[in-house]
Write a protein that binds this DNA or RNA. Sequence first.
DNA 1: ACCTGAACACCGTTCAAGT
DNA 2: ACCTGAACACCGTTCAAGT
Lengths: 200, 200
Amino acid sequence: MVRMPTTRPYHHGDLRAALLTSAERTLREKGVAALSLRELARDVGVSHAAPGRHFKDKQALLDALTLVGFERMARAMDAADDPELPLERRLTALAKTYLGFAIENAELLELMFARKHDPDVSAQLTAAVDRSAEPITRLISDAQQRGEIIEGDPERITMVAAASLHGLAAFTANGSLPAEASLAGLDEHIHHLLHGLRPR
Amino acid sequence: MVRMPTTRPYHHGDLRAALLTSAERTLREKGVAALSLRELARDVGVSHAAPGRHFKDKQALLDALTLVGFERMARAMDAADDPELPLERRLTALAKTYLGFAIENAELLELMFARKHDPDVSAQLTAAVDRSAEPITRLISDAQQRGEIIEGDPERITMVAAASLHGLAAFTANGSLPAEASLAGLDEHIHHLLHGLRPR
DNA sequence: ACCTGAACACCGTTCAAGT
DNA sequence: ACCTGAACACCGTTCAAGT
């Protein structure tokens, strides 16, 4: 027998997921400041106290969104990494993916890097952060082994590359640099990162 | 005749300034999320509606803080720039100043780059942002003229340098990279920026 | 186990009224 | 000109009570 939709179609088992989906939508459309647990509850058709069952407080919801963000980014970066590619093209592909994520998820990116998270989630969060940085770490160490990247502490060199990409992504996500200009200049940006600003 | 302090010592003409000072203190100590106009009014000894005389809404106060931040940063960058220095040392000095600002004003930096500002202040804000970026812009064009930096669109090259510094500052301000590690690695970071990650 | 409704202590913003 | 006090419509969080 088929269950007919009632006046309250869902929120049986997946209230948590529904809240996260709705929260991300609000985040994208109106920004973090506009995110209210009560409004979220209304949007999802549940009492204002119901979210409390799934998130101990508002910060817990923001932390969950952050985690979702890093996991999504990690998947994207992982999928974009092709170890067969020559170094510069390989790095450009990763950078483009990062930049694309930043453009498509500007508000989420801000939340992800806002470091307000509860210590409770920090273990999962650290894992997700590491996973999303791993393709770049791997690229650097691969290239070092081939002698295509200078020698020296791989962590520091990875940090130089990551800072360069993150700075560009941050300027793009916050509107300092228009998305088109950012994407159009990406190849050159990576070239400069690899070859330096001093003449050779 | 000396005015004895009354129960309400100030808030005559400088309520606006007092609110900004108090707001920055709260920002530094407890973060943006903890910033409330009503609490600010209490701290400063004034009715909860008084701030409304000086800031049309909460965003206006945040915008004013952002402006103060960029002006302070601009002054610091300007004071740190020494055109007599050789390129790498000159750039390192600017980077160190930027990083120092980011460490000392981590919460403020986040606010400054959060792009939520009202269009009203955007003219002043744009000017302050430009002024704080100018030392780097100037350094790049000086060095280009001397042939110490590669040719090409100076704006793009400035963006490469700025992204690198901003990425490092952002990772430091948000705790991804401890301040000490960040400062300790700064010389090398700048070296890599100038010389590239590929072996020469 | 999961959700509701009422309650509490906060908010930001507005607006008449006071000085 | 600058500030107050009351009012309004919101919040987040908690907790007994319901199913």
